[in-house]
């Protein structure tokens, strides 16, 4: 089946099986491999992208369901001149990543969290990122990164 969608501002299309997950379309067909897969039960959040501006675990959608939608992946976050998105920069400043595998999903989830709640409490950040797992950082510096991006720390 053919899907047409907008990814990071560019029109793209691909021919996929109906069962193809959005995350596999993004990774395997569009070769945007920054979006990661960490589980097979929609539990880890490594695959988080923005769909029409809202954060979505891209393993929970079929590729064909993205027909006509606007997707932003981690590759679309930094400015064209390479300047990191403020959330990416906050993760860098606060050592919010180690192996970096959960990071794209964390950054996408955290950006959309701040969009909904621009000045969250620490507890709200933890609650907002509940669906994103990290095995390396113990979350302390991830929470710090998000608070810092929100201007709260």
């Amino acid at each position: 089946m053919k899907v047409d969608l907008t990814v990071n501002g560019s029109a793209m299309s691909a021919d996929v099986e109906p069962r193809t997950l959005l995350v596999h379309l993004i990774r395997d067909d569009l070769d945007l491999t920054g979006t990661n897969v960490g589980c097979d039960t929609s539990s880890c959040g490594a695959c988080t992208v923005h769909v029409n501006g809202e954060s979505v675990k891209s393993c929970t959608m079929f590729a064909v369901q993205a027909q006509g939608l606007e997707i932003t992946t981690i590759e679309g976050m930094a400015a064209d001149d390479g300047t990191l998105h403020p959330m990416q920069e906050a993760f860098r400043q606060c050592h919010g990543l180690q192996c970096g595998y959960c990071t794209p999903g964390m950054v996408m989830a955290a950006t959309s969290l701040l969009k909904q709640n621009p000045s969250p409490s620490e507890a709200e950040v933890r609650e907002g990122l509940e669906g994103n797992l990290c095995r390396c950082t113990g979350y302390h510096n991830i929470v710090k990164s998000v608070m810092s991006a929100a201007g709260g720390a």
Binding site: G34, T35, E75, Q88, F91, R92, L97, G100, V107
Partner: peptide
């Protein structure tokens, strides 16, 4: 290491 990992380039 971070810029690459933060932008999906890793």
């Amino acid at each position: 290491e971070d810029p690459k990992l933060l932008t999906g380039e890793g």
